[in-house]
Write a protein that binds this DNA or RNA. Sequence first.
DNA 1: ACGCCTCATGAAAGTAAGTTTCATCCGTGG
DNA 2: CCACGGATGAAACTTACTTTCATGAGGCGT
Lengths: 304, 304
Amino acid sequence: MAKSPKISASHEPGGLIVHISGLLPSLSPAEQRVARLVVSDPADAARRTITDLATAAETSEATVIRFCRSVGMDGYPQLRIRLAAEAARRIEPPDARVVGGDIPPGADLAQIIATIAFNDARAVEETAEQLDPAVCEQVVEAIVAAGRIDVYGAGASGFVASDFQQKLHRIGRTAFYFPDVHTALTSAALLGRGDVAVGISHTGTTSDVIEVLEQARARGATTVALTNFPRSPITEVADHVLTTAARETTYRSGAMASRLAQLTVVDCLFVGVAARNRAKARKALEATAEAVQSHRVGAGRRRA
Amino acid sequence: MAKSPKISASHEPGGLIVHISGLLPSLSPAEQRVARLVVSDPADAARRTITDLATAAETSEATVIRFCRSVGMDGYPQLRIRLAAEAARRIEPPDARVVGGDIPPGADLAQIIATIAFNDARAVEETAEQLDPAVCEQVVEAIVAAGRIDVYGAGASGFVASDFQQKLHRIGRTAFYFPDVHTALTSAALLGRGDVAVGISHTGTTSDVIEVLEQARARGATTVALTNFPRSPITEVADHVLTTAARETTYRSGAMASRLAQLTVVDCLFVGVAARNRAKARKALEATAEAVQSHRVGAGRRRA
DNA sequence: ACGCCTCATGAAAGTAAGTTTCATCCGTGG
DNA sequence: CCACGGATGAAACTTACTTTCATGAGGCGT
């Protein structure tokens, strides 16, 4: 048989749940039902027997096993154990905040704040946990060596792309961001070997971004994808894939946690690049900070 | 039936290992061998199959089962799971992260990632903690009732302003953001009673933003400031002050944590506003999501 | 010392859990 | 309309877990 991809999960001891939620959209419907059960209550799933879990997910044991393999486990017992470990490690949320869940209709502002902060912080932490330092290293390497860096992103991811561009620019890297697809395509066509193209798309399905990244790749540039879903289409046109870990269940809630997760990754890359040449980066940052100084009032201390 | 003692362990979630070593002397020799293996390396034991463990302890599966019962477990699978959970909990959280500290010169990427994520997550959490729900409420109120909302911000805060504008727009609020001071001033001059002007500035000293907010206030608009410093100049021209809690000592003016903190506040306001009219907001969000649908590939799940 | 009892122990039988195979079904594109 | 490929669950199968039971090693009273 042609073996399913089986994305390795062995190098991420902390992020099994995260890993699974990332893979969720790439799973078959029946497997998704299993995944959802597992993600929503890992501890409970660990307690269940395979038959039990299969029944709960309204599917067969065979599907559960397939699910195990899909997320990189050898079999059900292994999943169970990893799940138990994971569940134990995770500090119980202070109160009944639904992770990744919707905000209850009757919620007051204090609840809303608590829920959002909790989910946002989680997204940041979990993203960091599952980020592969080796891949980051390669990306940093490529950016450091790049003649030019293009950052692409549409919609909410566009802000992140723009932020990244601006950060790189501030430390003296030649970076561009294009809010417009046509311009972006034009720019991508002018990239070449040694240049870097970074495509940002939470879902990994934004055709504009994929198209541009593809173009860049065709021209010989090193392509990097930043997405929440490790098996989404964008990863097919990327040399390096960086993933975020936002469980933004509700599409409609307007890309909140995902955006923070993306920014966290951007920060990591930025600092990684800056760290390659501390002195120069620092000097550049100081120069840029000084440049806007005249646009600040009450410089020095701010009235203790 | 003359049941063996079976000391309950269910009420001590944390101390399974301790529990076991406590009753080690009361176990039969063969069971003790099992117990010693388990205590010395719980994680490893959890990975083994019952037969495997029995062999390692030079005994039979039956004895392992008896051991399980002796320590209060129902059977081997339960022991395994508890063991895995216990082992996971023992792993110390990655320490040595300097809160708000600079990144050490020799740091490798993994350290950088951990430090950034830690600080970013902290900023988000602490911001939420000190956010005043009452002030948020007033701001939400004002935005809901506003005829028009202007969001101002320069530099890094500009991205946040832009993000806020876009979010409000998506749920049907009339919101604007101007990257250019002149345009912003022009717009502010056209605001009036019932309108809202939001000024975002991390330091609270960005003269451009202050100036624009001042103008807006003079025209009768409700002014809101979002800053990290509760007594900075911007607060003097604001009717409502919302503060972030980012201790941005890292990589000066990289504006990393502060930006996430600001976004968290924006998210809270956004959800607060959206919650005021769930149905309408949801409909608007769905409509906007649908609008970009044709720019996505592989709508359903992606590649088995 | 002898018989008897108790208990620890593992072999083996039995049961349940997990895994594989395979036929069927369903949607997709030719 | 058919061929194809993937998804799926029933059932066969394997492995893991649990129970039963026979054995034998002490202990202990006589």
